[in-house]
Amino acid sequence: MPLSRRSVLRATAVTSGAAVAASPAAAAAASADSAGLPPASVLNKGAHLVLLGTAAGPVPMQGRTGISSALVVDGRIYLVDLGHGAFDRFQRSGLSAAALDAVFVTHLHSDHLADLFTLLWLRFGGVDPLTHPVAFYGPGSAGALPAPSSGQPVATLAPDSPTPGLADFVEKSVSASAYDINLRMRDENWPDIRNLYRVHEIPVPDVGASPLGAMAPLMEPFPVMSDEHVRVSAILVAHPPVFPSFAFRFDTRYGSVTFSGDTTITPNMVTLARGSDVLVHEAIDLEIVKAAGLTPEQLRHHENSHSDVTRIGPEVARPAGVKTLVLSHLAPGTKEIPDSRWKSRASRGFNGRVRVGNDLMHIRVGG
């Protein structure tokens, strides 16, 4: 579908258990915005994918919020990434913080991390609070910074610790918010926030991967966690210059869902996603992005670090034998780009079902 130059420029400008039940106010907001999300009684049985946010990039966009997905299994909630606006979408979805068991962070880019601390900070007390420790799983320190892509010297923030991992991100966010937290504990009897989270930095297997070398060498998936509802495994994917960058697979008694995180076309994705009922994969429309007049560094990043929508079907979804391909982390994420364009381009070379992700979309897994 041809797009006007005005549309291209505008689109790419924004590129650079019962515990599931919500409060009446949150339920009303969800009803107004969810466009068909099922009631909590449905989510309490089976496995359900809820796309909270579907946009790529750190800049807010009209019609989509930052990337975040919820997998709900028999009423328990597992989140993958928390981009900008995800906290608001979580509440509008009708999901409850009391049912949240774990959060999985694919990598430490701001558009996947922006609302992680917000969720903890604004829900450690008050209305619909966290009621038990939530497990945070994600990358540790990269260990090294790449050379500047421009070839010119740049400043280094926090030179004594320039590559903090997920644990440092959370701990320092808590420390920086100590005044508000201390006040609420004293004035409103909120609990000690430190008792409501557990950070687990995911060790990178010894497969020859490094931040300055091969970021996603061929490897087998490895276990991350398991409980009575899910078994979670991960694999390294290529999203330079970020390291490590993980994709996650969730196996449940009802079916399997794999999340790519951010990645260029990576053979490891086929390995991880093989036989999945649902593959949630990031997508970029490079035809539009290339017409936008980006800087050489910006364009090179998009070409090297993301998956062109026309390649996902034939190079990932089809060889992995997935049943349903769901496009998310859309770039450009503006609604100026119609769903029909995304779907037609993703369907090339793939005969399975293709769904174009939209905020608050619900997909039953194995149903």
Rank of each mutant, 00 (worst) to 15 (best):
R5F: 09
R6W: 09
R6C: 01
R6L: 14
R10P: 00
T12R: 09
S31H: 11
G36M: 04
V42Q: 10
L43C: 05
G46E: 04
H48G: 10
L51R: 00
L52T: 02
L52P: 00
T54K: 07
G57V: 01
V59T: 15
P60M: 10
M61N: 08
Q62F: 04
G75K: 11
L79G: 00
G83E: 06
H84I: 15
R89S: 13
R89T: 00
A97H: 09
L100S: 01
D101E: 14
H112N: 05
L116P: 03
F117E: 05
R123L: 09
V127W: 00
P129I: 09
H132M: 07
H132P: 03
V134K: 01
A135P: 01
Y137V: 15
G140I: 14
S150F: 08
T163Q: 10
V170H: 02
S175E: 15
A178N: 12
D180Y: 11
N182Y: 05
N182F: 02
M185D: 04
N195P: 00
R198M: 07
V199P: 05
E201A: 12
P203N: 02
V204T: 10
G208W: 06
G208D: 07
P223G: 09
S226Y: 01
H229F: 14
A238I: 03
P240N: 12
S256D: 05
V257W: 04
T263H: 12
L279V: 08
V280G: 02
H281P: 03
H281N: 13
D285H: 11
A291Q: 15
P296N: 05
L299P: 10
H301K: 12
V309Y: 05
P314I: 01
E315Q: 08
V316R: 07
G321P: 04
L330A: 00
T334L: 06
S344E: 15
R348L: 15
F350C: 11
G352H: 05
G352F: 10
G357C: 13
R364K: 10
V365P: 02
G366V: 01
